[in-house]
Amino acid sequence: MSWGMVAGAAVSLIGGSMANRAEQRGQDAQREASEASIEEQRRQYDLTRQDQMPFLEAGYDSLGRQQAFLDGDRSGFENDAGYLFNREEMERGLNRRAAAGGSYRNNGTDVDMARMLSGFANSHSDSYWNRLAGRAGQGQTTASGLGALGMGMANSIGNIYGNTAAAQASSYQRQGDIWGQTAAGVGGAFNYWAQNRNASGGGWGGGGGGGWKYPSGGSGPYKG
């Protein structure tokens, strides 16, 4: 085989190897970019969830207080800051009026106090419930938002994985084409050399006409 043929085959092999390596590097870069994108999406979701957690926890707490109130536990209501403040103000005002009228701490004042506290408790319980409902609703809204955000992230990551898999499959196909073209180039160079050698009377294994011949008809080498 001439040095030109050897060089051509070597160039074909080297070119194929370099093209295949470049394809592999491109595949690696795409995979790294996909993983970086997925990691960033997860990081952003975790940050958002952390920021929204106080609202979610407040909603859970309020929902639990509502259930306890319905079950007859009035401790949350009776210790509510708004209820205690307004009750103290009401008692203080009633005592001042009773003292000014000379009836402080008598039975009539106690009856009036009990009647006012009963009505005040009934009216304030509605306010207490509504405030809990507002906080619980806020938590529910937060939970729904986080759920939608998580679903969107899951869909996005799924698309990234799907696109990456499709790109890898395409890359494998291109690598196969590269090596196939390389093999065809090397095989063509060898075939060209063999045909030229046969045409010039050269043999395959012994020198002169006593070696193996490679006919142009394609029937295979034969002993000359």
Rank of each mutant, 00 (worst) to 15 (best):
S2M: 04
M5P: 04
M5N: 13
M5V: 15
V6D: 09
A7G: 05
A7D: 10
G8L: 09
G8I: 05
V11S: 09
I14R: 08
M18C: 09
A19P: 00
R21Y: 15
Q24R: 14
G26D: 07
G26H: 04
S34D: 13
S34Q: 10
E39T: 09
Q41C: 09
R42Q: 13
Q44K: 12
D46L: 12
L47Y: 08
R49N: 11
Q52W: 08
Q52Y: 09
F55Y: 13
E57L: 13
A58R: 05
A58C: 03
D61H: 08
S62F: 00
R65N: 05
Q67T: 14
G72I: 00
G72E: 00
D73Q: 01
R74W: 03
S75T: 10
G76E: 02
F77C: 02
E78R: 10
E78K: 08
Y83F: 14
L84M: 13
N86D: 14
R87I: 04
M90H: 06
E91S: 04
E91G: 01
G93L: 15
G93P: 04
R96V: 10
R97A: 12
A98V: 03
A100S: 06
G102N: 00
S103M: 07
Y104L: 15
R105L: 12
N107C: 05
D110V: 10
V111N: 04
V111I: 10
V111Q: 05
V111Y: 04
V111K: 06
R115G: 12
L117Y: 03
L117E: 03
S118I: 06
G119V: 09
G119R: 14
G119D: 10
S125R: 12
S125T: 08
D126R: 12
S127W: 03
R131Y: 06
A133H: 07
A136Q: 04
G139M: 01
Q140T: 11
T141W: 07
T142S: 06
A143I: 07
G145T: 11
L146V: 07
L146N: 12
A148H: 11
M151N: 15
M153I: 14
S156C: 07
I157Y: 01
I157M: 10
I157F: 02
G158S: 12
G158I: 04
I160P: 02
A165H: 06
A166E: 09
A167F: 08
A167K: 08
A169F: 07
S171T: 13
S171K: 04
Q173T: 12
Q175M: 11
D177V: 04
T182W: 00
G187A: 08
N191I: 09
Y192N: 11
A194I: 09
N196Q: 12
N196R: 14
R197V: 03
R197Y: 08
G201T: 03
G202I: 00
W204S: 10
G206V: 14
G207N: 08
G208V: 02
G208C: 01
G209E: 06
G210W: 10
G211M: 00
G211D: 00
W212P: 01
W212K: 05
K213G: 01
K213C: 03
K213Y: 06
S216M: 11
S219W: 12
G220R: 06
K223W: 14
